[in-house]
């Protein structure tokens, strides 16, 4: 199992500097691949539609996932509900490359997340802070992402989560060794991972931005804050010109330190997805899971 976990973390390393795009059918998956996505996330409805429709959001129809697997050569990810062991087993059986145990879907278990080391394929999970990230990594997540607030087109929560994680990591790095156990207790995180962060100043897995990224500048902002790459959900296929915006975000992530490139790719993209003020959000997805 050690070996599988390492190979799974390695796949996430290959995603660095790239953009993972939400798609709801094979056609969108092809557009995403053509735009330069490093992977696609198959789901039934993008987060902004899940917000609008309400009800219980579940794993996608296996038929749709199979069609997406057949349509593209890049890795395919799919979402399962928090704690839904069987949805994860089904996704693995379909030959998907990566599972997102996601707060965007309605949680199946409010107490326990999936024991991810039981699976051959990797998981990515969301976090609002360092303690949450280290708990998911201890359960076997091979990759992390900020939770942000998906489906809002508002980057403020993703920024908050990334800044929180960064500042907590800096605190551990400058703490004397005898204080680390107390930090581990306070942030409810396994001691060995707290020690790892104190020593290396980073998570032991790749960490992407997610939740509310809608523009090339949003994506570049998250990269400048230290994310390894970016997930874009509703931001692409809920905008005026998905193919053009998708390409622009891919370029902005690679050249996130070059404002001239960001300016150039941001030109004439048409309307971004309609955004929501966080105080007006009825269901905060980020509060799901612990």
């Amino acid at each position: 199992m050690e070996n599988r976990l390492k190979l799974n973390k390695n796949l996430a390393q290959m995603f660095k500097g790239g953009v993972i795009m939400d798609v709801v059918n094979a056609k969108e998956a092809e557009i995403a691949e053509e735009a330069g996505a490093i992977a696609v996330m198959a789901l039934e409805r993008v987060p902004s539609d899940i917000r609008r429709d309400g009800g219980v959001a579940r794993m996608s129809d296996p038929k749709m996932i199979k069609e997406i697997l057949a349509a593209v050569s890049i890795p395919v990810m799919a979402k399962v509900r928090i704690g839904h062991i069987v949805e994860a087993q089904v996704i693995q059986a379909l030959g998907v490359d990566f599972i997102d145990e996601s707060e965007v879907l309605t949680p199946a278990d409010e107490m326990y997340h999936i024991e991810k080391r039981q699976f051959d394929i990797p998981f990515v999970c969301g976090a609002k802070n360092l303690g949450e990230a280290l708990r998911r990594i201890a359960e076997g997540a091979s990759m992390m992402r900020t939770k942000g607030e998906a489906g809002t087109g508002n980057v403020v929560e993703a920024v908050r989560h990334m800044r929180t994680i960064n500042s907590e990591m800096r605190k551990l790095q400058s703490a004397p060794k005898e204080e680390l156990m107390t930090y581990a207790k306070e942030m409810m995180a396994p001691f060995d991972l707290v020690e790892y962060v104190a020593e290396h100043g980073k998570l032991p897995v790749v960490n992407f931005a997610a939740g509310g990224i809608a523009t090339p500048a949003d994506a570049a902002l998250m990269m400048q804050l230290g994310c390894d790459g970016v997930f874009v959900g509703s931001g692409i296929f809920k905008s005026d010109n998905p193919a053009k915006r998708a390409k622009a975000i891919v370029k902005a992530v690679t050249f996130h330190n070059d404002p001239k490139v960001i300016a150039e790719v941001s030109e004439g993209l048409g309307e971004a997805m309609p955004g929501i003020e966080i105080s007006k959000v009825e269901t905060e997805f980020a509060k799901r899971g612990w």
Binding site: N3, L7, N8, N10, P75, D120
Partner: peptide, 28 residues
């Protein structure tokens, strides 16, 4: 080799590269 479930690690002896077997990681 197929999807991520088929990614694997092995070791091989490559004389022109190293006198010892080296570890090889195959990821998709």
């Amino acid at each position: 080799y197929g999807s991520q479930a088929c990614s694997f690690e092995t070791a091989a002896f490559i004389p022109s590269i190293s006198p010892k077997p080296i570890s090889l990681a195959f990821i998709r």
